[in-house]
């Protein structure tokens, strides 16, 4: 072994990572080479001095700061998990709103139709022998009675439970041409009902009638009163789907209002772009 080879292996000898046979070879060379002995000795002394350097110990602040940071991260991670759960809940609500609720309404309507055709009593025909003028008066009276019945029914709506109100709203879906009273009651529910689900269902029930100006202006008039971001976004979607350009100023107000939920403002911004 020459000096170069021996010195190349010093580091491994110091680390104790060299095989015993190789170490013995290096030591044999050292025994016969004063230059390499000096080199080895100087390096060994330097390493010994280096290894003798005492370990510095950190102050208590390092541990304190570390655990404070860990707590903060845990809280932050918990917040993210909660936000994710909220998002999933929102997705489930959306699924209910857009797929399950209309499907349920369809099933209810079909059931109602089948029951009606099977058990409903036929409408009373005008008694034979009445003159046309009398028949018209009777028909007019019948219409008024029906209208009063509808009015009373919708007024009583507010006194029912949330699920009953929901069922009533869903029942309107099977009416292809509900009269204006039903429409205005739906708008009334959208504006005033305390339940978010009822308001959302009322809005869903109004979708088939979005072509009517009174429906669009009713939803637009209700928009500034609404506080719930979920309902607000649904109303914005409604107005945009109805291509109601009169909604643009109201949407601009929402976009500019920094106190309103960010998601709502973004929906309004998107809506404005589509309008």
């Amino acid at each position: 072994m020459n000096c170069t080879h021996a010195q190349e292996r010093f580091a491994d000898v110091f680390d104790g990572r060299l095989a015993a046979a190789d170490t013995a070879e290096v030591r044999a060379h050292l025994a016969s080479c004063p230059d390499c002995q000096r080199e080895y000795s100087a390096l060994a002394r330097t390493l010994a001095a280096l290894d003798a350097l005492p370990d510095a110990r950190p102050g208590p602040a390092l541990r304190k700061n570390f655990y404070a940071m860990l707590e903060e991260e845990k809280n932050s991670a918990a917040s993210v998990a909660a936000a994710t759960a909220r998002h999933r809940h929102h997705a489930r609500v959306s699924l209910w709103r857009w797929i399950l609720a209309p499907a349920a309404a369809g099933v209810l309507a079909l059931g109602g139709f089948l029951l009606g055709t099977r058990f409903a009593t036929p409408a009373p025909a005008p008694a034979p022998g009445l003159d046309p003028a009398t028949a018209r008066i009777i028909a007019d009276l019948q219409a008024r009675v029906d209208s009063v019945g509808q009015l009373v029914g919708m007024s009583l709506l507010q006194q029912r439970s949330t699920s009953e109100r929901l069922q009533t709203v869903l029942a309107t879906l099977d009416k292809k041409n509900p009269d204006q009273k039903v429409i205005s009651d739906l708008i009334g529910l959208l504006a005033l009902d305390p339940s978010t689900n009822v308001r959302l269902s009322a809005l869903d029930a109004l979708y088939p009638h979005a072509n009517q100006p009174i429906v669009r202006s009713g939803v637009l008039a209700t928009l500034p009163r609404e506080q719930n971001p979920l309902v607000l976004v649904a109303m914005i979607d409604f107005l945009v789907a109805a291509r109601d350009r009169e909604a643009a100023p109201e949407l601009e107000k929402i976009v500019r209002n920094e106190t309103i939920d960010q998601g709502v403002r973004e929906a309004a911004k998107r809506g404005l772009a589509q309008l």
């Binding site: 350097l53 370990d55 510095a56 110990r57 950190p58 102050g59 602040a61 390092l62 541990r63 700061n65 570390f66 940071m69």
Partner: peptide, 23 residues
């Protein structure tokens, strides 16, 4: 954290810097 801090003290020559870096 102890060995890491020791390494950083020797690397930087500064205790305060070593604590900051370890953190």
């Amino acid at each position: 954290h102890g060995p890491l801090y020791g390494f950083l003290v020797k690397l930087t020559g500064q205790r305060t810097a070593a604590e900051d870096i370890a953190q």
